[in-house]
Design a protein around this nucleic acid. Structure first.
Length: 556
DNA sequence: CAGCGCTACCACACCCC
DNA sequence: GGTGTGGTAGCG
């Protein structure tokens, strides 16, 4: 047994050293043109983690894409570049044929669906009609749960069907609205499809379930262990338990619609005759790869193309071609810029209960405290984003919560930047204070001198995702509107979602850059050096840099 | 000689009637 | 037989 472990360990170590000896090629630097100067970024990685680490080190608005490169086993490598640059090399469809968007975990994203059924096993099924009914259902749900207006004209409908398989992607183009991340999208989708779950899973006919006569009101047992609750918008009392389609149904329990809307159209059979849902629920996982518009799976010919019955048409733009607009619209994590972006959440009640229990058990009446993580993971994340800047990995040493003031005090370790002295303290730690009542944060510190003068930094607003949390406290209407900065149509500058400091004032943004400049400088130098030592140098002005180059590298 | 993140499923232990 | 746990094949 022990020996087995040793052997395995050795194997892994050997592999690690191999990778280090032979890091990936890939730093070839195409440029869009000599005139368009923003430096080009185009970097390949074998490992997703490395790609995301590189993204973090980049100031530019870059994103991770997965490229399939070996038929059969789905092996992928990871490309980091900007949307603009990817499109430039992608659009001809001579290269980069099997590309996937990596929907980053914890990143704001659009509502999306993967729909499919086997045509042979479902000869009766009318795919287009099913799509239309689903869209109708989803729009209704968005309205009911979030008061979000949505119509079929807002749904980008992509088709990837074959003779055997009906296959669609839907990407919702909601104005000023996005989900907190794709896990929340999944929670939302499962929640609104709950009425359909009791129709599957059994061999016998769905009609038998009518006779079970459960007393629960609108919805059957959920297939997931706990229920799901969407971030509420009004002061509903039955927060999140189950969700009624409208108040009328709620008031008339004798109604035939007791179970909610009829979603039987979603039930399809797989090739061995088992019942499944038309909606694929497996696409809402962390860092999910979602095939790009005009890409096909490796080994297959069929690419995602605009569906016949698509009703979404992007706005015309002088600078951006229509195809490019469609491409940008198809990207799940490319959230449209808005200065009033609302972030929707949908928790599993598991998560929410944890939080409630935490408060119930830990807090009698006084203040609570702990180490590392507070009961507000979202706020912890935000605080960590403040103290994890370009190389310095700050952490939360301790937190305290003061009830009357609704103040979270974080003792920070490793990161010692003090806004009072404009540099890091040498031996004293700092604090980050989060004022939930006023939805702001500021910095203080343990340094005796700063303490003596009672230093306290300016206040900065909390980002939307964090303020949102506050809704938990039975507050007024859902008003999670927040300003987010963007220069390229993506509302999330740091793709790591929560760290989007766009919500912070300009002054703070600049400030933030200042204090990290010296760190970045060294890192940039290293990156530049790494870049120059890459296999590919800068291919200046060359219009058609074939990524056969990439393919060659991969083959060796 | 390099993917990732799951879930469904199985085997097994343990408990209770 | 019911329930929890740990490991893994294989799916998306």
């Amino acid at each position: 047994m022990e020996r087995k472990w040793e052997a395995k360990l050795k194997q892994i170590e050997e592999r690690a050293s191999r990778y280090e000896k032979k890091p990936l090629p890939s730093v070839y630097r195409p440029r869009l043109s000599k005139l368009e100067e923003p430096p080009s970024i185009w970097k390949l990685f074998h490992r997703q983690n490395q790609a995301f680490n590189f993204v973090k080190s980049c100031k530019e608005d870059v994103h991770v894409f997965a490229l399939e490169y070996k038929v059969g086993n789905g092996q992928r490598i990871y490309l980091v570049t900007t949307y603009a640059q990817l499109w430039f090399y992608y659009k001809s469809r001579k290269n980069l044929l099997h590309c996937y968007e990596v929907i980053p975990e914890n990143a704001v994203c659009k509502l999306y669906f993967d729909l499919e059924f086997n045509k042979l096993a479902n000869p009766e099924a009318d795919g287009k009609k099913m799509v239309a009914l689903l869209i109708e259902h989803v729009c209704k749900a968005l309205q009911e749960l979030y008061r979000v207006n949505c119509s079929p004209e807002d749904v980008f409908n992509l088709d990837s069907s074959t003779d055997e398989k009906f296959s669609r992607h839907l990407i919702f183009q909601l104005r000023d609205v996005a989900f907190k991340d794709n896990i929340h999208v999944g929670n939302f989708v499962r929640k609104i499809l709950q009425p359909a779950f009791h129709l599957i899973g059994r061999e016998d006919d769905a009609s038998t379930s009518e006779t079970t006569g459960h007393e629960f009101s609108r919805f059957p047992e959920t297939p997931i262990k706990q229920g799901i609750s969407c971030s509420k918008m009004s002061s509903d009392t039955d927060r999140g338990e189950s969700w009624a389609w409208n108040s009328k149904e709620r008031e008339s329990p004798g109604s035939a619609k007791l179970r909610g809307p009829d979603l039987s159209f979603l039930v399809v059979k797989n090739n061995v005759g088992e019942k499944h849902l038309f909606v694929d629920l497996g696409v809402y996982t962390r860092n999910r790869n979602f095939r790009l518009y005009k890409s096909s799976k490796i080994g297959k010919q069929v690419a995602l193309e605009i569906a016949e019955d698509n009703r979404f048409f992007p706005e015309q733009s002088k600078n951006i071609s229509e195809e490019n607009q469609y491409f940008l619209s198809s990207l799940v994590s490319n959230v449209r810029f808005s200065d009033t972006l609302r972030i929707l959440t949908c928790d599993t009640s598991q998560n929410e209960q944890k939080r409630v229990e935490y408060f119930n058990s830990t807090s009698t009446k006084g203040n609570i405290e702990g180490f590392h993580c507070s009961p507000y993971p979202e706020i912890d994340q935000f605080v960590l984003s403040l103290v994890n800047k370009n190389g310095i990995k700050g952490g939360i040493r301790h937190w305290s919560y003061f009830f009357p003031e609704e103040l979270l005090v974080y003792d920070i370790c490793k990161y010692r930047w003090c806004r009072n002295i404009g540099r890091a303290h040498k031996s004293n730690n700092i604090m980050i204070l989060v004022d939930l009542k006023n939805e702001v944060w500021y910095q203080k510190c343990h340094d005796p001198v700063c303490k003596a003068e009672n230093f306290r930094s300016d206040c900065f607003p909390l980002p939307a995702e964090v303020s949102l949390l506050y809704l938990l406290k039975e507050e007024e209407e859902f008003t999670a509107a927040e300003t987010m900065n963007s220069d390229t149509g993506s509302a999330q500058k740091p793709p790591s979602g929560l760290s989007s400091e766009g919500a912070v004032s300009d002054a703070d943004w600049d400030d933030g850059l200042d204090e990290t400049d010296f760190v970045e400088a060294t890192e940039d130098a290293e990156l530049a050096e790494a870049a120059e030592s890459g296999l590919f140098g800068y291919c200046g002005g060359e219009e058609d840099i074939p990524d056969e180059l990439i393919v060659q590298v991969l083959r060796e």
